[in-house]
Every structure is written in structure tokens, then in C-alpha cells.
């Protein structure tokens, strides 16, 4: 038990250090972008958060696959926690993306931002995941249904991305464009630090939440054994 605790504390510490370092680098050290100026720096937060959300969903799907493969119920909690984190990072993606759009172009939302549109679709999908979980009693059935749905989710990610690209041909294109940042070496370095920070944040929150939920379950078991 104490070993697990140590790991959780280490993760939290590492994540905190990376976050502080990343934000500091992004705000003060990274070179100013020629086109967009200071507001471009939100890119260092927005894109790592988006990538971390994908990582969450991928991790959740992996755990879901393990559940279906081994029928071991502990993977249900792990898969659920990962998806849960993914939705939180997803909301943050939408929010930071929206802020960036407002700063760059003056609108809170634009359909021409492919990533944002993709995230909206995924956000709807994973919200339905929660609706599914809430409307089924806990047990092997709910674990199975959640796992299958989580797997459909990762299949949906590339398919939706393709769909959104194809849709641009007939959905009235808005004139906003944004060059993918041609990152200089130092920009790339800051980006990597921020990405590591966000992934570390995910890992830390995930470990903590899992520990908490497992403790709850254990407490419940003990309480029942006493009855």
C-alpha cells in the first residue's frame, strides 16, 4: 500500500513541476509568434490538452479491451476513470480552443477549426457514455456495455476526423485560416514540456482517482461483510 502511495506522490510531484515549468516557459521564454503575437501562447496549453484527451480515450479503450478479454472487473473502473478524465480534458480543449478563437478571430466558435469540431463530436459521444453508465445498474453488464462503447469511441475518432475533412468541401467554408505553427526548435521544446506536463497531470489525476475509488469500493465491501 505504501509503495502505491509513494508512486502517487511522486507522480503528483513530477506533474506539478512539469506544469509550472511548462507554463513558465510558455509565458516567458518561448519566442513571440510573428503573426499572432502574445495570444498564440495559448497554443502551448490548448494542443497538449487536446492530445492528452486523445490519450485518455485511448487508454480507456485499452482498458476496455482488457476487460472484455479477461473479464476481470477491475478494468471497468480503470476504463471509466480514463474516459472520465478524457471528458474533462475534452471540455478544457473546447474552452481553450474557444478562447483562442475569440482572441484570434473574434468569434467564440468556428466550424472551420477541424480539431474543435472533432472534439465537439467526441464530447457528445462520451457524454452519452455517461448517460449509458447512469442508466444501467452496476455490475458485469454495465462493465461490458461501457467497454464496448469505449471501443466504438476510439474507432470513431479517425472516422470522424476523416468525415470532418470531407465535409469541408460542401459545408460553407469560413474564411479563417490558421497556419499550423511552423515550430522553431525552441517552440518545439516548450511544446514538448507542456505536453509532458499535461500527460503527467492525467497520469497523476488518474492514479489518484483510481486509488480513491478503489478505497471506496473496499470500504463498501468491508461494511457489507460486517452486516
Amino acid at each position: 500500500m505504501s509503495l502505491r502511495n509513494n508512486r502517487a506522490v511522486l507522480l503528483a510531484a513530477a506533474a506539478s513541476v512539469l506544469l509550472v515549468a511548462g507554463l513558465a516557459l510558455a509565458l516567458f521564454w518561448a519566442p513571440e509568434d510573428a503573426d499572432q503575437g502574445f495570444s498564440q501562447r495559448i497554443f502551448y496549453v490548448h494542443v497538449p490538452i487536446a492530445l492528452t484527451a486523445y490519450a485518455c480515450f485511448g487508454w480507456g479503450a485499452w482498458k476496455a479491451l482488457r476487460l472484455l478479454w479477461t473479464r476481470d472487473s477491475r478494468y471497468d473502473l480503470e476504463s471509466y476513470t480514463a474516459v472520465h478524465m478524457g471528458v474533462i480534458f475534452g471540455i478544457l480543449t473546447l474552452v481553450t480552443g474557444s478562447i483562442w478563437a475569440k482572441i484570434s478571430w473574434g468569434v467564440w466558435w468556428t466550424w472551420s477549426e477541424r480539431q474543435l469540431t472533432l472534439f465537439l463530436v467526441l464530447f457528445l459521444f462520451y457524454c452519452a457514455y455517461f448517460m449509458l453508465r447512469f442508466s444501467v445498474e452496476s455490475g458485469p453488464r454495465r462493465a461490458n456495455l461501457s467497454a464496448v462503447y469505449a471501443l466504438f469511441g476510439v474507432a470513431l475518432i479517425p472516422v470522424s476526423f476523416l468525415a470532418i475533412r470531407l465535409a469541408e468541401n460542401f459545408i460553407h467554408p469560413v474564411v479563417f485560416t490558421r497556419d499550423g505553427p511552423q515550430m522553431s526548435g525552441s517552440m518545439f521544446f516548450v511544446f514538448c514540456v507542456c505536453l509532458a506536463a499535461m500527460l503527467g497531470l492525467f497520469a497523476s489525476l488518474y492514479t489518484n482517482e483510481l486509488m480513491g475509488k478503489r478505497l471506496d469500493a473496499r470500504l463498501r465491501e468491508l461494511r457489507e461483510a460486517l452486516e
Binding site: 463530436v121 467526441l122 457528445l124 459521444f125 457524454c127 452519452a128 448517460m131 449509458l132 442508466s135 444501467v136 445498474e137 456495455l145 462503447y149 466504438f152 470513431l156 472516422v159 470522424s160 476523416l162 468525415a163 470532418i164 470531407l166 465535409a167
Partner: peptide, 21 residues
């Protein structure tokens, strides 16, 4: 599930957006 008719559209619509496209 308990929600049945309520749940199906919620599960269905995000998944079929690519079909509409």
C-alpha cells in the same frame, strides 16, 4: 438499460455523424 427509448438517440446520433457527411 433503464432509460431505453431515451438512451438510443443519444448513443446513435454522434456515431452516425460520419454517415450524414
Amino acid at each position: 438499460s433503464r432509460a431505453r427509448e431515451l438512451l438510443l438517440p443519444l448513443l446513435f446520433l454522434p456515431l452516425v455523424i460520419p454517415v450524414v457527411v
